[in-house]
Structure formats: structure tokens, C-alpha cells
Design a protein around this nucleic acid. Structure first.
Lengths: 204, 204
DNA sequence: TTGCAAACTTAACACTGTTAATTATATTTG
DNA sequence: CAAATATAATTAACAGTGTTAAGTTTGCAA
């Protein structure tokens, strides 16, 4: 049945069109511009057409959410590809995470701060992309421990500790909570804070 | 002019009525239930009446925001009142912050994660309540340094470092990002992570 | 060619924040 | 006291949101 195959393919294509358009609006005009009607306008379909491809808006947002985690994982892989020293890899992983967050605030918000895409059915592989990035962190921490770093600490708790730290830094920054620091000072604040944190961790 | 005084007073009373009702809906049914029409229904006024007391919804949210910081500061003062040891005070401050966030997720979100109340005119004393809590943290860190803790570190950067950490922990928790950890395990994870962080800081 | 099923649209509902025009209520003035 | 005026609150409306149900068009199969 080549004919139903084609239909399947076309359906998948339109699904991608929706996601890509949403992504585009997302990147260009920020979170709030991603309304079903905006997307529909852009692709010249009726708003309700989207419901034939996504159960509701959350499910669409969840697709963007997944997209974001794919991007993050890609950055991780690219950054770590040429590095072998565990501590070096650990440090670069953290820096990559922070840079991704600061450079893609909309994605970061959707991935780690928004409540909406989380209340979709989180069964099956829906949450897998996220787990992959998390596993990435735990793996690097494990490597560090295997090389003598963080003596006497569990990799799971330690991973979570550094996640809390970098997430806190990124989310405060992108949500404009650094107004008590001078504007020009902020970048160096983030930089130096990162170094401080690393120095605390490095002490054995 | 006692008559215009009374008017002033009544106006202030109605302003408070709006804030209190918003707070109530906020606490009872969460963030999303705070719509101008919901508030208006509750106090049996028309929705547009609110605009006579607040420029727009952001300004109202900002009032709740301020309310939240007042609550937090109060908790800080209550928790620290009987403590004198700098390190003890520092630890309790952190624990109080985390507990406040976990117990008042709606307030915490508004105060530290939401973008809306921040885009009001942040001149004058509008942002003061927030600064007060921040100053509280910096003051305790300063005290620790004065007592020999954190040798060789600036209080500003160190304060920010621990803020990042606790904020990251709270915000990940209340935004349901701990699904990769077993449900029963989560509370002890937060507890132990807090301890780990403190132990890292304590090492001189 | 008719029947059917999939794809899509139109219309509507119940919300949201917000503005302009209008009415009712007080207070001040002639 | 009566008329003019300022204040307070309301109604109606606009433009936007997500979502559902009903209707329409389209293309494939019997």
C-alpha cells in the first residue's frame, strides 16, 4: 500500500511544519507569540487544524521541549568530543549548560522552568530526551569520582547539587533577577561565581 | 479636611481588599486563578473597577510580589532571632529560604521566577522589599567572613553563589523537575543535597 | 457512481486583559 | 436648597486566547 505510506509521510510532514513554525515564532518573537492562531496564520491553515496533529497546546509545547533537549545534547556532545580529562570534561559540561541557557532563554524556560509541558502524559519516551541530558551529567560526575575527585560522595547527589547551582544561576539571570548588581558587572559576576563553585568542588 | 481623609482611607481599604482577595485566590487555587474577573467576582465588583486602583494586572501582581518578600523577611527574622553563631545563622537562613519556597510555591514563583511583575517601573521603593531580603543574605555571609569562614572570598560573589544553589534547588523542585528521582526519595535528596552544599562551603 | 472516511474549515463557547463611554453617587459651589 | 461638578463604578465592547462541535470539502474504495 504505497498510497497510505505517502499519506503517512505527508501527515508527518505537516506535523513537522507545525513544530518548525512554532519553533520559528518561538525563537523570533519569544514565548508569548506561540499561540495556535499565530502558528496557523503563518502556515496558512485554520487554527483548529493543529488539533488534528496535537491533542492540545501542551502536546505541541512538549514537542518544542523535546527539540530543546536535542539541541542541548548536541551541544554537550560537540563540546566534549575532543576532551578526555574527567575534570576538564566536567567543567566544560557545566559551562556549556550555562551558555546554552543564557543564549536560548526561551528554550531554557520551556525545558526547565515552565509548568505546562510537564503536565502531559509523561509515560513512554516522552521524557527521554530530558533523561538523556541528565544521564550525561551523572556520567561525567561518575567519571570524576572514578578518577579520585569528590571522595566519599555519591554521584547522584553530587550531580543534583551542581545541577541546582547552574540552574539557579541561569534561571535567575534570564528572569532578570540580577538588578541589584550593576549592569556591566553582571557578566563577570556569572563568570566568577562559576569559578568559585568549581573551586569549592575541586577541594578534596 | 477630615472628609478627604476618610475618602483616602476608604480608597486604601478597597485597595487592600483587592490585594487580599488576590492573595486568597492565589493561595487557594494557584497562580492561574488570579484573573481580574475572578477577583472582581469574589469582591462583588465589576472587573474594570480594579483599574481604578491598579494601572494594570502587572501592578497588582507586583503588590503580591512585595507581599511575598515581606513574608520571607518575616520568616528570616523569626528564624534568626535567637541565634548568634554566624555559621549557624547562615545555615538556618538557607534552610528558611528553601522551606519558604517549598511551602509557598505560588509566592516563590511570583517572586523569583515569573517575568511579569518585573516589567513594571522598578524605580523608587518598588523593588525595595526584595533588596531587603538580598541584603539579609549578604549580611550573614559578611558575618561569616568576619568570623573566619570563606577565607579569601568576596561576600558579594559568595552570597550570589549560595543564592544560585538554593534557588536552583527550590525552583527545580516546585516546577516538578525531579521526576527522574523516585518519589519517596525526593525529600531526602533535597535534605542531603543541602548538607553536601554546606559541607563544601564549610571546608576552609 | 455511490458511499465513505479523512482533512480541513467555520462557528461558537468561555475565557483572558484592557479601553471608552455611560451611569450613578457623592461633594462642592452659586 | 438647588444646580454644577467631580468621583466612583458600571456596561459594552475589542482583540486576543485555547478548545469543541458541527459542517464542508476532498480523495479513495466498493
Amino acid at each position: 500500500m504505497a498510497i497510505s505510506d505517502r499519506k503517512e509521510r505527508e501527515k508527518e510532514e505537516r506535523r513537522r511544519l507545525i513544530i518548525d513554525t512554532a519553533t520559528k515564532l518561538f525563537r523570533e518573537h519569544g514565548f508569548e507569540k506561540v499561540s495556535l492562531r499565530n502558528i496557523a496564520d503563518q502556515i496558512e491553515y485554520s487554527p483548529t487544524m493543529i488539533y488534528l496533529y496535537f491533542k492540545d497546546k501542551n502536546e505541541l509545547l512538549h514537542a518544542l521541549h523535546t527539540e530543546g533537549f536535542r539541541m542541548l545534547k548536541q551541544r554537550f556532545d560537540a563540546a566534549l568530543a575532543s576532551l578526555s580529562d574527567p575534570w576538564e570534561r566536567f567543567k566544560v559540561l557545566g559551562e556549556t549548560y550555562v551558555r546554552f541557557g543564557l543564549e536560548n532563554p526561551e528554550y531554557y524556560e520551556l525545558m526547565f522552568m515552565s509548568g505546562e509541558p510537564m503536565q502531559t502524559e509523561m509515560t513512554e519516551d516522552a521524557w527521554n530526551e530530558g533523561l538523556l541530558s541528565h544521564a550525561c551529567l551523572e556520567s561525567e560526575v561518575k567519571n570524576c569520582i572514578a578518577s579520585g575527585y569528590f571522595p566519599g560522595h555519591e554521584f547522584r547527589i553530587l550531580s543534583f547539587t551542581v545541577w541546582c547551582f547552574v540552574h539557579g544561576m541561569v534561571s535567575l539571570a534570564i528572569k532578570d533577577r540580577l538588578k541589584m548588581y550593576e549592569e556591566e558587572e553582571r557578566e563577570s559576576l556569572l563568570q566568577r561565581t562559576m569559578e568559585i563553585m568549581m573551586s569549592f568542588l575541586e577541594k578534596k
